[in-house]
Simulated assay, not measured.
Amino acid sequence: METNAAGYRRSTGSPRGEARRLELLALVTDDLAVNGLVDFSLRRAARAAGTTHKVLLYHFDGVEDLLRQAVARLRQRRIDLAMTAVTEGPAEASLADRIRVVWPMLMAEEAGLARVLDQAMGLAMYDPARYRDLGRHASEQYLPILVGLCPPQWPERRKRGVAEMILGTLRGFLLERLISGEEDGVAAGFEALLRALEHEEAS
Rank of each mutant, 00 (worst) to 15 (best):
V38M: 09
L113A: 13
E156L: 10
R132H: 08
R132C: 09
G50E: 10
I166D: 05
Y58I: 00
A48P: 01
F40M: 09
A192T: 13
L57F: 11
E200C: 05
E109N: 09
A192H: 11
G122T: 12
Q76T: 13
V147K: 15
M125V: 10
V63W: 05
E140L: 12
A120E: 10
L25Q: 01
R132S: 08
D118K: 07
M83H: 05
T52Q: 00
G13Q: 10
R158Y: 04
A46W: 11
A19G: 13
R16N: 02
G172A: 07
L32T: 08
L42T: 07
G168M: 11
M83E: 00
H199M: 14
A120M: 10
L134H: 05
E191Y: 01
P15M: 02
L106P: 02
L113W: 02
A45C: 03
F173N: 12
L32D: 05
Y126P: 05
M121E: 01
E2A: 10
D133C: 08
E176P: 01
E201Y: 08
F60N: 13
Q76H: 14
E191V: 07
L81E: 00
A96V: 00
V71W: 10
A91I: 08
P90I: 01
R47K: 03
A48R: 05
L106S: 03
Q141H: 06
T3V: 10
R115C: 04
L117G: 03
E164M: 09
D127R: 12
A91D: 12
V63E: 14
H53N: 05
L22S: 14
L42C: 08
K159L: 03
Y131M: 06
G135V: 15
I145E: 11
M107V: 02
G135P: 13
L194I: 11
